[in-house]
Design a protein around this nucleic acid. Structure first.
Lengths: 345, 345
DNA sequence: GGGCGTCGTGGAACCGGCTCCATCCGTTGT
DNA sequence: ACAACGGATGGAGCCGGTTCCACGACGCCC
């Protein structure tokens, strides 16, 4: 009896011995190479079956010098938009031989994070950075480690990236309001010094201003406010805005989260939406549909999907083929729901 | 000049050579072992510095036969509750030497999934299964691979698990309605044959029935409906319910998603909430607070946190110390917001 | 029938760490 | 002065795959 439950898993040597062949042959069979006689192949397959042999991916990885892992780095994993992007990534990786390693750098010390991630660049075969711009020293390490890297929702001169046209998004949102007849349009965005976040809110402001300019509307500095992503902060800001002597008839928020804060503010102040106040968000997260929020949709899931596909190309492509820092732009569109209407007169 | 950019990263051998010591000594220094003379240690450290040496985790893992990876398996990664749990897991792993490998089995063929996951059990040092019960054959493989495993939001006789008392949750929700004066209370839950999901909705029904019984309220079969998790389906079900000749004055939904569907139904039918209809959900996902939904809060983040902690104990503990299949129960509580009130009379 | 190419195959070397054992050396004890 | 002892150290061997080279057998051709 040799069918006793083996205390230690079978190795390729065990298989070779049992099949009466060399390890090279077993390896060839395992990897579906040609040049193995059918008879031999059968013997090997039998031995594998008998021994319940499964190759060790650990050993395989060491030998091959790859990990079969894609690292996904995401700040603020809390947010629905981040999750949606990760799902897009997962959908691609699920049909690839790559696993998804998730790094949430939300609370983590950045130094620690960098340390673990780029330690040697051998924990993953490629990196997908979502909504964050790597600082210069990390860029340096990434290159030193020759680690393929793609950015999603963040631009960088060194890496390929999947982005949206934030300026255009801001413009679309604002134009929609202008077309409805609004001229007193406020903007609620992020504060720039957000450590990881980059200039997307800022770009949306630019679009906002451009749309105003095109319509010949004088921008009012007091109508442009900045806070953090949270809807609580946005609510406070919106209350301020709506208490101005000349109050805006519409608010464009740089994210849906902030738009929700604006809606709360309106409720608190007893302003009816959309009759007395129109609100436009940005992102089109799940809640937006539930609440009936008019917003600018950006393809979140799709952005993750494309980022993963692009990275996989890099990872499986020629090793030293330098990744061109090309930028892929995904479309944005206004989704009109029930928080926007013509202004009161 | 030997500072030319090395085309290949330094190895432990390079360090040993440069420091003029043996690899054993370098290894000892790296792992902070005692029995290294300070002078020697300094030499090694210098060499490491000069060579910018970083140990290969690949090689390390093979040698040590561990991966430093915790696998997290989650179905329906879409849902906010799953995400919240994963965040809890991430928060624990971030302060550990373990990385988080995410397996979303949402769309994936189950066979494929199982294959990749348990191939040899060497892709991760431990597995955390969220909201899913492994079928018997997978349990078998798990044991064969001696892979530590903890379940979150799912019970199993073989594994430790972190759960909530769903019966009690259902009871609390229903009691809250009863205390408000409701006697016509409907229930909207999941259909049982959900492939992965287990009996949590069913248990909540039990709690619902128990609360009714305690209050001496006759249960009405036509008030208990089951559909899927989606709020669209729940909306349809709720419309049916609310069109009954004797319509319920309150609805307890087995999840917040379903509760939102019920709220939509009320809006469609022109029923004011909470004046004409009270609604209670389950989970307390983020949207619940936004919408002002009264609901049963379960500690989602905490469940992930505890699951990860428990698993880490197992993984870092004695190797063959069999994990007792103990069950840790997290508390639930009713969060009263603005969708519940006394019934109309 | 001998030379030569091809196919199939075995197995040593290697990937880059860790571990254990043998060795070396200095110290202490008698 | 010498034996015994223990701490520091070097390095072969191992973890479990892959790869590449060498070798044997066979068939083909002239």
């Amino acid at each position: 009896m040799e069918t006793l439950p083996p205390t230690t898993p079978a190795t390729i040597n065990d298989v070779a011995a049992r099949a009466g062949v060399g390890v090279g042959t077993v390896s060839r069979v395992l990897n579906g190479r040609a040049n193995v006689r059918p008879v031999t192949r059968a013997k090997v397959l039998d031995a594998i079956e008998a021994l319940k042999y499964r190759p060790s991916s650990l050993a395989r990885n060491l030998s091959l010098r790859r990990t079969h892992v894609i690292g996904v780095v995401v700040p603020f994993f809390t947010s629905h938009s981040a999750v949606e992007r990760v799902r897009g990534v997962a959908s691609v990786l699920a049909r690839s031989p790559y696993d998804l390693m998730l790094f949430d750098i939300e609370a983590e010390d950045r130094r620690e994070h960098a340390f673990r991630l780029f330690d040697r660049g051998d924990r993953s075969d490629g990196l997908l950075l979502l909504s964050l711009v790597p600082p210069d020293d990390e860029v340096e390490r990434l290159r030193a480690a020759r680690l393929p890297c793609v950015l999603v929702d963040a631009p960088h001169p060194e890496f390929p990236s999947i982005v949206i046209d934030d300026v255009r998004g801001g413009e679309l949102a604002t134009s929609h309001l202008i077309e409805l007849g609004h001229r007193l349009i406020a903007f609620v965005g992020d504060k720039p010094p957000d450590p990881f976040r980059f200039a997307s809110s800022r770009d949306r402001t630019v679009g906002y201003e451009r749309a105003l300019a095109q319509a010949g509307i004088e921008p009012r500095p007091e109508f442009v406010r900045e806070g953090t992503q949270s809807h609580q902060v946005a609510r406070g800001i919106a209350i301020d805005l709506l208490r101005l002597p000349q109050r805006p008839t519409a608010v464009f928020a740089a994210s849906d989260a902030q738009a929700l804060g604006v809606l709360e503010a309106a409720r608190i102040l007893g302003l009816r939406v959309p009759e007395e106040l129109s609100v436009v968000g940005f992102d089109d997260v799940e809640v937006a549909a539930l609440v009936g929020l008019t917003t600018v949709r950006q393809p979140l899931f799709e952005s993750g999907r494309r980022g993963a596909e692009r990275l996989l190309q890099l990872v499986t492509g020629e090793p030293d083929q330098v990744a061109q820092p090309d930028v892929e732009q995904l479309p944005v569109e206004v989704v009109i729901r029930s928080t926007t209407a013509a202004p009161p007169r």
